[in-house]
């Protein structure tokens, strides 16, 4: 509990600092367009890395194995959000597909 609270505290401080620094230190400065674009692309890269790390999981022998339920769930979730453009239903569709694949394997 204490560790979690400490973690939350540090996370909150780091996040608030980024907000306040933007508002105070960065205001009025001319940032290069390249830096702006770079900052905008970072979240997509991190999300992809998080997804890949859950699809390709280390096996006991130190090799990577594909988790087919996770792969199927991600593909179904991605297709669903593209088609129906609604967040929660897409999550439900993704999870249901992953569960189905897990059941069939």
């Amino acid at each position: 509990m204490i560790n979690q609270l400490l973690f939350i505290g540090v996370l909150a401080a780091v996040t608030y600092a980024s907000r306040l620094l933007g508002l105070t230190v960065m205001a009025g400065r001319n940032l290069s367009p390249a830096v702006r674009l770079y900052f905008n692309y970072v979240p997509a890269a991190i999300m992809v890395a998080l997804i890949i790390k859950q699809i390709f999981v280390p096996s006991g022998g130190g090799h990577l194995v594909v988790s087919l339920p996770v792969l199927a769930a991600c593909l179904a979730g991605a297709a669903a959000i593209k088609l129906i453009k609604k967040f929660l239903p897409s999550i439900v569709i993704g999870i249901a597909t992953g569960l189905l694949v897990r059941f069939l394997l």
Binding site: L11, R19, G22, T24, M26, F39, V42, P43, I46
Partner: peptide, 21 residues
């Protein structure tokens, strides 16, 4: 986790700078 969050938060710098005025 914290380093990744710092990286994710970089765009807040842009938002703050743009909203300052």
């Amino acid at each position: 986790v914290l380093l990744t969050v710092v990286l994710l938060n970089l765009r807040n710098l842009l938002y703050g700078a743009a909203l300052a005025e």
